[in-house]
Amino acid sequence: MEISLDSLVFWRWGPVLLNATILYTWLVMALLTLISWLVTRKLSTGPKISRWQNLLEVLVAAMREQIRQISQEDPGPYLPFIGTLFIFISVANLLAVVPGYHPPTDSLSTTAALALCVLVAVPIYGIAQQGLGGYLSHYLKPTVLMLPFHLLSEMTRTLALAVRLFGNVMSGAMIGAILLAVAPLFFPLIMQLLELLIGQVQAFIFAVLATVYIASATQAHEERREAVLQSTGAKDRVGDQPKED
């Protein structure tokens, strides 16, 4: 029994290879792009819209609302990244009902890649929001001594992201395989359903955690700005008093 899709290699040239993970990823990408293109090719801004447009609008609106609720910020800049994370993981897991298909998220390489993307996205968004100095100073708070712990936190949460998704998706397949051996008739069906549910939950969790991490990086700035505003407001009040006399 195969544990990782990575071992199913179709073509290899030196370090470059084409395995099932990449192939299935491409499949999912192609499917998503095709559907998006077909639907958004003829969008309506009027009161009457097609069902597919309605579906995508509901999806996008829900994602925007989630991001807004979690980050308390305008979802515009985060939507492409976080939304794609969610849609990709969700669809990749959902397609597991198709016989012969294996979710690419079943591979630790894929989940690690996604987690690395989040790892890089957090500082990028942070720097984009508050500038390089502002973001880096965040690592030195409250003291310089905290720098190693901040770095460690970044590493571990990235690892946790990758392993959580991989473990959950892989365990589904594993449990299915084991139960197939123990109770071959009825239980695997239920476990398949459960696996689908778990796949959706994992997609949601992954996206939410990515949002939380990015938001934490950008909101430090917001908090500091509020603090600055408050201190200046206090200063203004102090400065106002002599004028009143």
Binding site: P15, N19, S109, A112, A113, L116
Partner: peptide, 14 residues
């Protein structure tokens, strides 16, 4: 469990 080329490829894919 991790093939770094695949990781890189998946990052690019993503």
């Amino acid at each position: 469990l991790i093939n770094w080329f695949v990781v890189a490829a998946q990052i690019v894919n993503f």
